[in-house]
Every structure is written in structure tokens, then in C-alpha cells.
Computed example of a mutant assay.
Amino acid sequence: MEARPTRRNALLLGLSLAAVPAAATLATRFAPAAGAAVQAVNLDDPAKKEIAMKIVCSAENSSLDWKSQYKYIEDIDDGRGYTAGIIGFCSGTHDMLELVELYKTRKSGNILAKYLPALRNVDGSDSHAGLDPNYTKDWATAAKDTVFQQCQNDERDRVYFNPAVSRGKSDGVRALGQFAYYDAIVMHGDGSDGTSFGGIRKRALTKAKPPAQGGNETTWLNAFLDARVWAMKQEEAHSDTSRVDTAQRVWLRNGNFDLNTPLDWKVYGDSYHIG
């Protein structure tokens, strides 16, 4: 569930609420002509969802090839035990336990089922008790199984992607805003405390209103990203905010609310492109 710790120094762009007028001007500049029929495409559109998976993978795994991450597993020393899979399921934050339980439901004799007692015991901690020395090897073996791959896809959608898109739609934000919500839930979780998604959104509401409440989309997303950056800086492992500053802020500044390609961004100083 959690983001990888900072790998290298990032080049920070930094766009504050003071830049909203310029961003709004750019949004107007790229708006369609009056009377043009435009159907906004949400992030759950298959093509947009693929883009979202690639962007998150650039931050989580320094790659655009998210489908190669089913086998990923390591302890990144962030206090959450093992982090693994396409979205960073963690042994210390319950989502890895739920994933392996789902895998057992769909394939009872799988190679990871024997670790369920240990996963229940280490849930909420950074302990590897009962998992070492073979858990990482067995995870990589399980990752070759299409049943386990689909379990990862389904849990990613249930826990992270679908809630983010649903909340984005209810707030009246388009694909970019829905992605900002998704990336926040991936890193911070979908809770209500100060540094979770709910806490971030609550903090943003003290500065602006979402479009569904009559607010301006640019103003709202800047407020949300400001609150997101604040939350990231509360924890050393997340203190590099380039996945916001040199990615989401750039697209917002350019008025790319529909997250249309081509997209160019930087995370931890590395450059990425989707044509």
C-alpha cells in the first residue's frame, strides 16, 4: 500500500495556490470552442486506467511496466514489513493479508496459503516472524500464477482504485483529479486520520470546495495537492514529493484535466513519457 522511500533527489517544481490564476488561464486556453460536444472520460475508462497504472508504477517501482511487478517484494525499512506486488501490498498494513486470503479462497492449495497464520500475527507491525526465510521466494513463485495476478488486480481495484474514482466522480473532478485521489489512497490509505486520504481531503476543504459543491476544479485540486504534500512531509519515507510536484502539478498547471496524452513527468529525478 505504501510508496517506496526516496531513491534519489528530485527536481521540485513547486506550484502553490498563488499560481491558481495562471493555471486557470491555461485551462481556459486549452478549453474546447463554445458549443463543441465533449464527453469527459473518467479514469475507469480502460485506456485511462492503463495510464494511471503506469504513472503509479513510475513512483512505486521506477518503471512504466506495471505488469512486471506482480513478483516484486522487499522490506523497504518503512516500518510496514514486506512491501510487494503491483500496488505495494504490505504485510504490516492488512492489505497483504487480505490479498493472500483471497488467493486461498480462489486456489486453496496455493504456495502462499501456509503463511496466513504468520501474516495474521505480523499484521500491524514490521515483523517477519514466520515469513522468513522463504516467503519472498514463494511470493515470486506465486506471481507466475495468473490466479494470483488476478487477485492482485482485483484487490488493487477494490481497496484503492475504485474508491478513488468513485470519490472523484462524487466531487465532480475529472480524470486528473480522480488520479490524484488514487495516488493519495495508494500511499496514505483510505482512512480518516490526518495523514490518510480522508484527512487530506478534510484539510483541503478548509481552503476550497470541490466542483460538486460549487468550487473551481483548479482551485480545489491545488488545495488537495497542497494538503497531500503536507501529509507526505509528515513521514520521512514519503518526504520526497516529486510524484506531486513534477507530475500532477505539471498536468494541472497545463489544464490537462482529462489526463490526455502525451504525458511527461519526473519522479525522484527520473523522466517518464507516455505518447
Rank of each mutant, 00 (worst) to 15 (best):
M1E: 05
A3S: 09
R4E: 09
R8L: 08
A10I: 11
A10N: 03
L13I: 15
A18S: 13
A22F: 08
A23L: 15
A24L: 09
A24H: 13
A24E: 14
T25A: 12
T25H: 11
L26N: 15
A31P: 04
A34H: 06
V38E: 10
V38G: 06
A40C: 00
A40I: 04
V41E: 08
L43C: 04
K48V: 00
V56N: 08
S62G: 02
S63P: 01
W66N: 06
Y70T: 02
Y70V: 05
K71D: 01
D77L: 08
D77S: 13
D77N: 15
D78L: 03
Y82D: 04
G85P: 06
I86M: 01
T93R: 10
T93S: 07
H94K: 10
H94I: 09
D95Y: 03
E101C: 00
L102A: 11
Y103R: 00
K107Y: 08
K107I: 01
K107W: 01
A113E: 12
Y115E: 01
L116P: 05
P117A: 05
A118H: 03
L119S: 08
L119K: 07
N121G: 02
D123F: 04
S125G: 14
A129W: 02
P133T: 15
P133F: 06
N134D: 15
Y135K: 04
Y135G: 00
K137P: 03
K137H: 04
K137G: 01
T141V: 15
T141P: 06
A142K: 05
A143N: 03
Q150G: 00
D154V: 03
R156T: 02
F161W: 15
G168P: 08
S170L: 13
S170C: 02
V173N: 08
R174G: 12
Y181C: 00
Y181V: 00
Y181F: 15
Y182G: 01
Y182Q: 05
M187K: 12
H188W: 05
G191H: 09
D193S: 14
G194N: 08
G194E: 15
S196M: 11
S196H: 10
F197V: 08
G199N: 02
G199W: 07
I200L: 06
A204M: 08
T206R: 14
A208V: 12
A212K: 11
Q213R: 11
G214P: 12
G215V: 09
G215A: 13
E217R: 11
T219S: 13
W220A: 01
N222G: 00
N222F: 13
L225C: 02
Q234E: 10
E235H: 14
E235D: 12
E235A: 12
S242D: 06
R243M: 11
A247K: 06
A247R: 11
L252F: 09
R253D: 08
D258F: 03
N260T: 13
T261G: 03
P262L: 12
P262T: 10
L263A: 07
D264T: 15
D264Q: 12
W265F: 14
V267M: 11
S271W: 06
Y272V: 04
H273K: 12
H273E: 05
G275C: 04
